[in-house]
C-alpha cells in the first residue's frame, strides 16, 4: 500500500494511541492481553484506514473501530486471560472491607467496572471520555433514548456491586 498513507496512519495512531490503550484497559486484565488487543485494534485500524475519510474525526473513528474490535471481532489468544472467566469470578466486596477513602473506593470502582458486560463497558468508556449521547448511540447502534436508559441502569448496577 501507499507509503504516504502508511506514514500518515502511523503518525496519527501514535498521537492518539491513548484511545486504544483505554479500550484495552477496560476489556483486558493483564499486560499481555492488553498488548494483544492493542495489536488487533491496530491491524483493524490500518485495514480500515484507506476508507477513512476526513469527514469524521480520527479519534471518533478510532473509538468505533477499537470498541468493535474489542467487543465483537477479537478472538482472545491463548496467552490472554479470558475476560469471561474474569466476569464470572464475582468479586464479593464485603461491607467491612469497604473503606471510605477515595483511593479504596476507586479500586473497588475499577473492579466493579470489570464485572460489567461488554456493552456496559462500552457505555462506561464513552461516558468517561465525555462523549455525548448522540455519539454513544451512533457508536453502538441504539437510539439516544435507549443509550440514556442503559447508562442509568449501568450506574445503578455499579452502585449495587459497590454496596451489595
Amino acid at each position: 500500500m501507499n507509503k504516504e498513507l502508511e506514514k500518515s496512519f502511523v503518525e496519527q495512531l501514535q498521537k492518539h494511541q491513548n484511545i486504544v490503550h483505554k479500550v484495552c484497559r477496560l476489556y483486558t486484565n493483564n499486560a499481555d492481553a492488553h498488548n494483544d488487543l492493542f495489536q488487533e485494534i491496530t491491524i483493524q485500524l490500518w485495514r480500515a484506514y484507506p476508507k477513512f475519510r476526513g469527514d469524521a474525526k480520527f479519534s471518533t473513528w478510532m473509538y468505533r473501530v477499537g470498541l468493535n474490535t474489542a467487543i465483537t471481532l477479537y478472538r482472545k489468544s491463548k496467552r490472554s486471560i479470558n475476560t469471561q472467566a474474569f466476569d464470572t469470578v464475582q468479586f464479593r466486596i464485603k461491607a467491612e472491607e469497604y473503606d471510605d477513602t477515595e483511593e479504596q473506593q476507586l479500586k473497588l470502582l475499577y473492579q466493579a467496572v470489570h464485572q460489567l458486560n461488554d456493552i456496559e463497558k462500552a457505555l462506561v468508556l464513552l461516558y468517561l471520555e465525555d462523549k455525548d449521547y448522540r455519539e454513544i448511540s451512533e457508536t453502538l447502534g441504539i437510539t439516544e433514548v435507549n443509550a440514556r436508559v442503559k447508562m442509568n441502569r449501568v450506574k445503578k448496577k455499579l452502585r449495587t456491586i459497590l454496596n451489595p
Partner: peptide, 27 residues
C-alpha cells in the same frame, strides 16, 4: 480516569508499524 490518561506505555512509530502488519485473529 482523566488524571491517569498518560500512564500507558507509549508505543513508538516503528512499534505501531510492525503491529499493523501482524497477522490478525478475528471471529
Amino acid at each position: 480516569w482523566k488524571q491517569n490518561e498518560n500512564q500507558f506505555e507509549s508505543f513508538s512509530d516503528s512499534d505501531i508499524y510492525k503491529m499493523s502488519h501482524k497477522k490478525s485473529s478475528t471471529i
